Amino acid sequence: MKSIEECKSSGASRRRLVRGLALAASLLAAAVAPAAADVLLPDFAPFPESITSTRAGTLYSSSISDGGVVRVRPGSSEAEAFIKPGEGETRSTFGVLADEKTNTLWVCSNDASFIGLPGPSKVEGSYLKGFDLETGALKVSAPAPHKPSICNDIALLPDGTAIVSNVAQPELLRLKPGGEKLEVWLADPALKGGVDGLAFGPDGNLYVNTFNSGEFFRVDVVDGEAKKLTKLETSRPLTHPDGMRPYGSGFLMVEGAGPLSRVTISGDRANVETIKDFVGPTGVTLVGDTAWVCEGQLGYLFNPELKGKPRPQFHLRALPVEKK
């Protein structure tokens, strides 16, 4: 018969073995877990202009032509209506950004009829809208200070101030926490090339691209204020640069011509390294080690030769990227 000490020792060994097997099983499961799958957008959410995500992996995507915002829950391959077209007095939806600190989904809503995109409602003007990140309830509706304006993309200062690119004017707008109206944060003729994607770098400065002219800029930021605008040299020409997000020590950025690229900054130079080409990408977001790219294919909307022809399919594409 075993002694009490021998029984205790044997029991402890079995527990260690069970824990070891459980750990091995979890590591194996992680190693063989399937990669994130592409999402085919529904017919009611064509021409996505922007994409954002939460840390848990919920995706949100806008529609420049039909308005509204769709949501894709973590692990799902289907998009569901989150903000219906026209809801919250929205119109054509452009940039979207999830702010988990305030539980807010920021959405750019625009009357883009003057560029041939009437959208789903008759609301005039350009707005930055804030919706509850979980329920979709409208929280904020801040108009642009003048016309024409197109609220295009959004980035956040540490204090929660929203900085917005106005692609219809050479300027950046801001909405302070609790504010009710967008105001000019920076105006500079150098941004006349269609200020578009923007993101804050690890240095605390704001980086901005221009869609039409293919330029890349740094805005020096001191105590929340824009102090200096510098045009950066790019390692290769940019063709319709659009959405970008922070990634490691730099950014992920898409261009309408196709590339998803990693952008790194060295002094006044931006090195642009293409990772993969997509079909008319307009936005990118990062969930863990997966980049999600929305293929907006906006060229279809402005090509008279395609008028009346069936719309293409639209996807949110998943691409594994190197962890940073």
Rank of each mutant, 00 (worst) to 15 (best):
R73G: 00
R73M: 09
R73C: 00
P74K: 01
P74H: 04
G75P: 06
G75S: 08
G75R: 09
S76T: 09
S76E: 13
S76G: 03
S76K: 08
S76Y: 04
S77F: 01
S77K: 12
E78P: 01
E78A: 15
A79C: 03
A81C: 13
A81V: 14
A81R: 13
F82V: 14
I83R: 03
I83K: 04
I83E: 02
K84E: 14
G86C: 03
G86R: 05
E87M: 00
E87L: 00
E87A: 14
G88H: 08
T90W: 05
R91S: 14
R91F: 03
S92Q: 15
T93F: 01
T93K: 08
F94R: 05
F94W: 11
F94A: 15
G95R: 06
V96M: 11
V96E: 11
V96N: 09
V96F: 09
L97R: 13
A98F: 02
A98W: 03
D99G: 01
E100C: 00
K101G: 00
K101A: 04
T102I: 02
T102H: 05
N103G: 09
N103I: 00
N103Q: 13
N103T: 06
N103S: 12
T104G: 03
L105F: 04
W106Q: 10
W106S: 04
V107Q: 08
V107A: 06
V107R: 09
C108A: 13
C108D: 13
S109W: 10
S109E: 13
N110L: 13
D111Y: 11
A112H: 04
A112C: 05
S113K: 13
S113Y: 01
F114G: 00
I115L: 08
I115P: 12
G116H: 05
G116S: 01
G116C: 02
G116E: 06
L117T: 06
L117F: 07
L117Y: 06
P118H: 09
P118Y: 14
G119A: 11
G119R: 08
G119D: 10
G119F: 12
G119L: 11
S121W: 09
S121R: 07
K122T: 15
V123K: 15
V123C: 06
V123P: 07
E124R: 15
E124V: 13
E124D: 15
G125P: 14
S126G: 12
S126C: 10
Y127I: 05
Y127F: 15
L128C: 02
L128R: 04
K129Y: 01
G130K: 04
G130R: 07
G130E: 05
G130A: 02
G130Y: 01
F131D: 06
F131M: 10
D132P: 06
D132F: 12
D132L: 12
L133M: 04
L133P: 03
L133H: 08
L133W: 04
L133G: 05
E134M: 12
E134C: 06
E134A: 15
E134S: 14
E134F: 13
E134G: 08
T135V: 07
T135H: 10
T135S: 15
T135I: 10
G136Q: 07
G136H: 06
G136N: 05
A137F: 07
A137W: 05
L138F: 04
L138T: 08
L138G: 02
K139D: 05
K139P: 02
V140F: 02
V140G: 01
V140T: 15
S141D: 08
S141H: 10
A142T: 14
A142H: 09
A142M: 12
A142G: 09
